[in-house]
Amino acid sequence: MHLTRFRFNTARLGSRRLLSSPQMLHAAVLSSFADLPKQRDDGSRVLWRIDSTSRAEIHLYIVSPDKPDLTHLVEQAGWPATGRWETQDYGPFLSRLASGDRWSFRLTANPVHSVRCKDEQPTKWTAHIGHLHQMRWLLQRQERSGFTVLEKTAEKRVTPDRDQHELIVHDQRTLAFRKSGNGKPVTLVTVTYDGLLEVTDPQALRRTLIQGLGRAKAYGCGLMTLAAR
C-alpha cells in the first residue's frame, strides 16, 4: 500500500476545474495508474480525499495498492517546473498499529441512512444533516472499524450530554454533479471528522484504512488518515 500527497496550485485554472468537480477529480485520480485500479482480494482499493488548510493550501491524499504517477496533475494543476508529489510506503506504518495506540484522525465521509417513506416503497439512502446525527453515524461504526473515539473529561465538556467525545464535525458540503456515461444526477452531502481515537482492533483498523469507511468512496469519501497526537 502507498500513501501519496499532492499540493494544488490554486492560482491555476486547472486546479479550480478539478476542485469544483468530484467527477473530474475521480477520473484524474484513476488516471494516475497505468492499469485501471481494481479492488484487491484483501479489499484494498484506491481512496482519495481533499484537505484544505486554507484557500491557498489544498492537498490531495491518495491511498492505493499501486504507486501512482501524478505527472498529469503537476502539469494541469501544480507547479510544472518545480512541483512534486510525495509517496510513501504505507505498509510499515499499518503493520505497526497496536491495541492501545492513540492517534489523531481525519475522515471525510458521506454519512447516510436508509429510509422508507411509505411501507410499499423501496428504501433509499438519505443524508444525515444535523451534526449530532452525523457524529452518531461515526460512533456507531467505530467498534467494527477497529477503534474507539476518546471521551472528554468532564471539565472539558461544553454540555454534559452533547459533547462527550474528542470529535469535531465540520466542513459540510453538498456536491451535485452528473455521472459520466449515463449522465444521471448525483447529490452527496459530505462532512469532515477530526478527532482522537484509541486502537482497539489493529487488524480491523488496517482494513478501515485501506478499504475506506462509508459510501461514495469514488468521490473523495471514506479515506481515514492517522497522525501523531
Rank of each mutant, 00 (worst) to 15 (best):
A77F: 08
I62Q: 09
T123K: 15
W85H: 10
T208H: 02
T187R: 15
S20N: 08
I210C: 05
A228Q: 02
D35R: 10
V169Y: 01
L132S: 14
L73Y: 01
R229A: 07
H170Y: 08
H113Y: 13
A204E: 09
L197F: 01
Y90E: 06
D51L: 14
A28L: 12
L197C: 03
L197N: 00
L94P: 07
T126V: 13
L213S: 06
D35A: 11
L132K: 07
R102Y: 00
A227S: 09
E57D: 10
R5P: 01
P111E: 13
R17A: 08
C117I: 14
G91L: 15
L25S: 01
P65L: 03
K217L: 10
S54Y: 09
V169R: 04
T200K: 06
L132Q: 13
Q142A: 04
G91Y: 14
R144C: 02
R102D: 04
Q211D: 01
R162F: 08
R45C: 02
R116D: 06
S20H: 11
R40T: 05
E86P: 01
R141Y: 00
M224H: 07
R84M: 08
P111K: 09
S52V: 05
D119F: 14
L197R: 01
P160G: 01
L94C: 09
C221S: 13
A56S: 10
L213H: 03
R215Q: 14
K217C: 09
Q164V: 03
Q211Y: 04
H26V: 15
E57T: 05
V186M: 15
S15T: 13
F8E: 03
D161K: 06
V74A: 01
E75Q: 08
R141Q: 07
R84E: 11
M24R: 10
S99P: 09
T148H: 00
P185C: 05
A216Y: 09
L19A: 13
R173G: 01
S44P: 00
L132I: 00
R5H: 07
L150G: 00
W85C: 11
F177L: 02
A56Q: 14
I210N: 03
G91I: 15
S32G: 14
K118D: 12
T82F: 12
G43F: 10
L18F: 05
V112D: 02
D201V: 04
R178I: 01
F93R: 08
M135A: 14
S99C: 05
D69M: 00
D171C: 01
L70A: 06
A127W: 08
R141K: 12
P22R: 06
Q172W: 00
E57Y: 10
A81Y: 15
H131S: 13
R141M: 01
T187F: 14
Q203W: 05
R16M: 15
Q23D: 02
L209W: 06
V158A: 08
V112I: 02
T126R: 10
L138H: 11
A216L: 07
Q88I: 07
K124V: 07
Q121S: 14
H59V: 02
A204W: 11
G183V: 05
E166G: 00
G91E: 15
P65T: 06
A56Y: 12
K217M: 12
D42I: 10
I50D: 06
W137G: 09
K67H: 04
G212Q: 13
I50M: 05
G43V: 03
T200L: 10
F147A: 02
A204S: 13
S32P: 08
C117D: 10
V169W: 03
R116A: 11
A98H: 12
D41V: 09
H26K: 13
L36D: 04
V63W: 09
F105M: 03
